[in-house]
Structure formats: structure tokens, C-alpha cells
């Protein structure tokens, strides 16, 4: 399970390495569509890259539609991770 700081660091790494977005632009309030210029197809690439980075399956998650700011991505990954590690009732 990744800590909050690791989630931020790994998500930012994806954006820097795969999307070539400068590190200094990666502030939590930055919007992936308005500030970085991603479109809906780029978002699919982002989701695939995040899946790989965090070893999670989020492609079909409805919450993806609400992603906008970097903070919303960090929170989403944290929530997914939390759910994966919550033991299900027998």
C-alpha cells in the first residue's frame, strides 16, 4: 500500500515521463484538461499508465468520469487502494 506522498510522487512521475509535463506544473489544483491539454483519448492513456504504476484495475471505474484536478487523481488512487485492501465480509 502506498502512502499519500508516494501516490503523489508516482502519479507525477507518470505525467512527467509519459506525458512530458514539466514537474513545476504539477500542482494539486492543476486541471488535466484545461491546464495540461489532455483530451478524452489521452485520459484513457493516463488510466492505463496509472494502472501499470499502481498495479490496480480502474479502467471500468465510474469515478474516472469525475477526474479533473491532480488532487482528484491522487484521492481517487488512494480510495481505490483503500478499497482493495479492505477485507470483504465472508
Amino acid at each position: 500500500m502506498f502512502t499519500e506522498a508516494e501516490i503523489v510522487q508516482r502519479t507525477n512521475k507518470v505525467l512527467v515521463e509519459y506525458f512530458e509535463i514539466e514537474q513545476e506544473r504539477l500542482v494539486p489544483t492543476a486541471h488535466i484538461f484545461q491546464d495540461f491539454g489532455l483530451d478524452s483519448l489521452d485520459t484513457v492513456d493516463l488510466i492505463v499508465a496509472l494502472q501499470k504504476e499502481f498495479d490496480v484495475t480502474i479502467r471500468d471505474d465510474e469515478r474516472i468520469r469525475q477526474l479533473g484536478t491532480l488532487q482528484s487523481i491522487y484521492s481517487f488512487i488512494a480510495a481505490v487502494q483503500q478499497e482493495m485492501n479492505t477485507p470483504t465480509a465472508p
Binding site: 509519459y18 506525458f19 512530458e20 491539454g37 489532455l38 489521452d42 492513456d45
Partner: peptide, 8 residues
């Protein structure tokens, strides 16, 4: 390259 990087 990613499509995003290419377009930019």
C-alpha cells in the same frame, strides 16, 4: 512517444 507527447 505517447500520442499526447507527439501532438504537443
Amino acid at each position: 512517444w505517447s500520442a499526447f507527447a507527439l501532438k504537443n
